[in-house]
């Protein structure tokens, strides 16, 4: 049953990604990208990564779509700017190069659910064993984010703060 859902949603995913490029109207592309994020969220749910799926559904499908739409109201609905031919060839070349690097990276990844892989032999069992009595949190993801990697999360929060303030300052430059 899971394999059927996987294949179905991966097909939808590729279809949505292709459609978002295919549409000339930016509004259609934005909506399709929102659907793309939703499909990714469903796929992560089937992989039991509920926290990530939650974030993807809230940020990818929710907030970014709204921000894209807010930007969309300020620009021309159909951007017919002329793209030079040699630029397109350059973009295609970069695309294939990056794709090649990504596929090269996949060969180093473990088989899905391989029990003998390094992280599955000591790190994850260790967290599962220790989290409950050390932090009292049932959700291991939250415990790792907040307790074991609390310093990292502090830095991430600071990054969000700095990014927000910088965006505010850039968009308000020249005023006051």
């Amino acid at each position: 049953m899971t394999i059927v859902i996987d294949i179905l949603f991966l097909t939808f995913l590729i279809f949505a990604a292709l459609l978002s490029i295919y549409f000339k109207n930016l509004l259609n592309s934005t909506i399709v990208l929102g659907a793309y994020s939703l499909y990714v969220a469903v796929l992560w749910t089937t992989l039991n990564a509920i926290d990530v799926a939650f974030t993807e559904a809230a940020v990818g499908a929710g907030i970014s779509t709204v921000l894209f739409l807010a930007v969309f109201t300020k620009i021309q609905p159909e951007d017919r700017s002329v793209i030079k031919r040699n630029r397109q060839i350059l973009a295609l070349g970069t695309l294939f190069f990056v794709g090649y690097l990504l596929i090269l990276g996949i060969t180093d990844m473990p088989k899905f659910g391989d029990p003998n892989w390094v992280t599955n032999t000591y790190l994850i069992p260790d967290y599962i064993e220790r989290t409950m009595h050390e932090t009292g949190a049932v959700n291991i993801v939250t415990a790792i984010l907040g307790s074991y990697r609390g310093f990292d999360t502090n830095g991430e929060t600071a990054v969000i703060f700095i990014a927000g303030i910088c965006t505010y300052l850039i968009l308000n430059r020249g005023e006051n």
Binding site: D51, F54, T55, N139, T142, L145, G146
Partner: peptide, 11 residues
Amino acid sequence: HGEISPGGGFQ
């Protein structure tokens, strides 16, 4: 409820 169920401060 982030300690028990999926979620947390960010979401």
